[in-house]
Amino acid sequence: MLKINNMTMRFGGVVAVNELSMEIEKGQIVGLIGPNGAGKTTVFNVVTGVYKPTDGEVLYGEKLEKISHLPPDQIAKLGICRTFQNIRLFKELSVFDNVFIGSHLRLKSGLFSSVFRIPTYTKEEKVMIEKAEYLLHKVGLYEEREEKAFSLPYGMQRRLEIARALATSPKLLLLDEPAAGMNPQETQDLMEFIHNIKDEFDLTIFLIEHHMEVVMGICENIFVLDHGNLIAQGNPQEIQSDERVIEAYLGVE
């Protein structure tokens, strides 16, 4: 599904990610953890095309084709979509419009058929509206659909971001700290929700998270980064007992 080959990302003299190689199988929930500044979000930014890797490549799809030279919008069209660590909603737009825009990338009609509301467009638009409404029901924000996105409480904004990402019909969903700032109950709900959407939309999920209960609870495979280097990988039990991981997190005498 996704394969990263010897990827290095350097910003000037700083090596954010160093020769990272990893692979994600279709249908997995994969976690990426590590201390602050380990380079986790940089990995996401490289996969989604925000950064071009200094070295190495990112391969994606059934046939594992190279995507690391593509711009972000084309990568999104191929079916990789993400949420952001510091929420990036379209603040002044309504909750509904935020999700609606998510499916704009799949629109086939041109600008003028949208202005003159030609049937080919209105038919497509109807599907987009139904999809947005369905997703809003799904994340429990249907009642708030007319509100402006910035007026929602934090937890709802996170859910809205996921709904917007789902509207792009992704195959691989990247979640950047989805449980940040959530209380234990919300975290529990989120875990169920992630499982739920994974099954319903046939997704592969790749997430960055600091809440260990989330990571250990839902991820089948975990990668651990520290100072840009991959220091461990494996299933939750292996990671929990890995000495280097404990060292990175707790320090060592």
């Binding site: 925000v50 919008d73 084309q74 379209f90 737009l93 419009d97």
Partner: peptide
């Protein structure tokens, strides 16, 4: 229409708009 809303999305947040495939 969808294009107008996409214009607004670009105004609101270019990085997010780009990541949503616009």
């Amino acid at each position: 229409g969808s294009y107008g809303k996409a214009f607004k999305a670009i105004r609101e947040d270019e990085i997010a708009a780009r990541s949503m495939g616009i």
